[in-house]
Amino acid sequence: MRPGDGASGVFCQCAECKKILLAGELFEALGVCPNCGHHHRLSAARRIEVTFDPGSFEELDADLRSIDPIEFPEYSEKLRKAEAKTGSRDGVVSGVAALDEIPVSVAVTDFDFMGGSLGSVAAEKIVRTFERGLERKTPVIVFSASGGARMQEGLFSLMQIAKTTAAVQRCRDQAIPYISVFTDPTMAGVLASHASIADVILSEPKALVGFAGARVSKQAQVSKVPDNFQTAEFVFEHGMIDRIVPRKEMRPTLIRLVRALGGHLRG
């Protein structure tokens, strides 16, 4: 259980400023440190709870589960451990929900499940999220929190980034609005696919956002890496995203956006 999720003890410590906080206080603040503003990672369940209309979320495709398609060393064990740790079958939780009574199709990634990595199940759930948006003519919202493609699925996982991209393309053809939200971290294969080609891209503050792992980038460069390299602030400065949105403003921001961009869908 992470600090932002409602830790079991009375006290917890901010991961950034190390201040001792009341667990209940941090929970009420949506996992944002009242002292330094650090946004702690949220589980998919808590993210859904703090973002969408209370009780509106209906999970779908919960029965999809990862298999070990290329018999990668230790993958099966890692899957079992991640299932035990998170109580989910994979890193993406998907379904339908509402924002101020506007129906939306949503997918939310839980970083705790193998670093939120994108394998066959996560991609299938994301693609079905886009397809539901198409079928039901509702906006699509995807929250990312991922280290990238799941290398334990080999070339299958590389193909998943093409597959989710294709689904975005179809939504675009049919004028289904799609909002992508980066949370810490949004990296590599996930950033180089559906996450980066939304109609509107938002990010939580200070989220790690980048293509190559920081070590690779630093090795490849003689020049000095900027201080804010591969952060939400860096990609915002470079025009890659629309806005940085603090967590407590995320729900009202999303409501405004789906009302504006999805007006044509409601007739």
């Binding site: 980034i161 991209t165 590599a188 080609i197 293509f211 490849a220 470079h238 890659m240």
Partner: peptide
Amino acid sequence: PAADPGVESESRGISEAIAAAMQRMFE
């Protein structure tokens, strides 16, 4: 071997460029 992983490429949106190129191929 890979797309360029440097600071310049990140600054100009290498991830978006790859995703958009794939998207374009689907069209």
